[in-house]
C-alpha cells in the first residue's frame, strides 16, 4: 500500500521538536501506553488529560455509555413496516462483535464506501422497511455507539487495497491538501505536531478509533464526520456534508492511519 515513509520521518522530527518545548508530552512519550499505542501510532487517549482518561476508563462515569444504552434499547425495539427489530435477525448484540473494525468498507452494490452509520441505515430501509435515522440523531449515534462498543478493545483493521484502493487514495489526498483561509491540511496539525500545545488544546494524531466520542465541549456524543466538519471550519474552510463521499474517503484514510489501535467507543475527549 502507498505508505508514505517520509511522512513518518517527519512525524519523528515533529515529536523531537515538540519534545523540547512540551514537558508534559515528553513525560507522556516515555510512558508505556499498552494497547493505546501501536508502533508509532497513539490513540487520542494518550494525549488526553488524566481526568478525561479516568472518565473513559470507568463505564459508570463515562457519559458516552448513556448513548450505548439508547442503542441497546433500540436493538430490541421493532420498527418499520416489516415489524422487525435488529434482534429479530441478528439475535444478541454479541453478533456485532468485531464488525466495527473493518468500517468503512467498499460495498459492490453501491460502488462506493459505506460507513457503519450507513450500514445500520441500510438495514433499516431494506430489511426493516423503516425510515433512515438522521446523522447526529440520538438514535443513529446511539446505535452506532452500541454496535462499535461490541468491538471494544479490538484492533482496527480497514481494507484499503483492491476495490477500496481508489477511495483510500482520495482520502489520503484530502488529508494532505491545504484548505481554508488558514491554508492548513490535516497533516499539518495531526502529523507534524501531535503532543504540542495549540492554544488551549494539546494536539493529538487525530485518530478515529474512539468515535463516536463523548466530547466535553459538545456536552454529548458526536460522529467522526462532525469532528471532520469542525476541523475543516476551524481553518476557515467550508465543510462537506455528513456521509458525503469526500468524508467517507477521508474516514477510510483516517481509520487506516489508526490501524491496530483498539476500538474505544465511546471514548471521552475534551
Amino acid at each position: 500500500m502507498g505508505i508514505n515513509l517520509s511522512r513518518y520521518a517527519l512525524f519523528g522530527l515533529a515529536l523531537a521538536l515538540t519534545a523540547g518545548v512540551a514537558a508534559n508530552a515528553v513525560a507522556d512519550e516515555k510512558k508505556n501506553w499498552g494497547a493505546y499505542q501501536v508502533e508509532d501510532r497513539r490513540s487520542g487517549y494518550t494525549y488526553a488529560a488524566p481526568e478525561t482518561r479516568a472518565m473513559q476508563d470507568d463505564n459508570f462515569q463515562n457519559p458516552g455509555m448513556l448513548w450505548a444504552e439508547i442503542g441497546e434499547e433500540l436493538w430490541n425495539k421493532a420498527d418499520g413496516e416489516a415489524g422487525k427489530s435488529c434482534a429479530s435477525c441478528h439475535k444478541g448484540p454479541e453478533s456485532m462483535k468485531g464488525v466495527a473494525v473493518s468500517y468503512p468498507k467498499y460495498v459492490a452494490e453501491k460502488k462506493n464506501l459505506e460507513n457503519l452509520e450507513q450500514r445500520i441505515n441500510r438495514c433499516r430501509t431494506d430489511n426493516m422497511k423503516a425510515k433512515e435515522w438522521k446523522y447526529e440523531s440520538k438514535e443513529l449515534l446511539g446505535m452506532t455507539v452500541f454496535v462499535r462498543h461490541q468491538s471494544l478493545g479490538m484492533p482496527m483493521n480497514v481494507k484499503v487495497d483492491g476495490e477500496a484502493a481508489p477511495f483510500f487514495k482520495k482520502g489520503e489526498e484530502f488529508y494532505n491538501q491545504r484548505r481554508g483561509q488558514l491554508d492548513m491540511a490535516c497533516k499539518h496539525c495531526h502529523e507534524d505536531f501531535p503532543g504540542a500545545q495549540l492554544r488551549a488544546n494539546v494536539l493529538s494524531e487525530g485518530q478515529g478509533n474512539g468515535f463516536p466520542v463523548y466530547r466535553l465541549k459538545w456536552n454529548g456524543v458526536g460522529s467522526l464526520h462532525r469532528r471532520f466538519r469542525g476541523c475543516n471550519k476551524q481553518v476557515r474552510s467550508s465543510a462537506y456534508g455528513y456521509g458525503s463521499d469526500e468524508y467517507l474517503a477521508l474516514e477510510l484514510y483516517v481509520m487506516w492511519r489508526g490501524r491496530g489501535l483498539p476500538v474505544e467507543t465511546p471514548a471521552v475527549r475534551n
Binding site: 484548505r179 481554508g180 491554508d183 492548513m184 476557515r236 467550508s238
Partner: peptide, 17 residues
Amino acid sequence: IMPSFYKSEGLHRVLKK
C-alpha cells in the same frame, strides 16, 4: 503550518465569509 497572513489567492474551499 504557519499561515500566510497576507495572501488571498490560491486557497482551497475558503468559507464564504
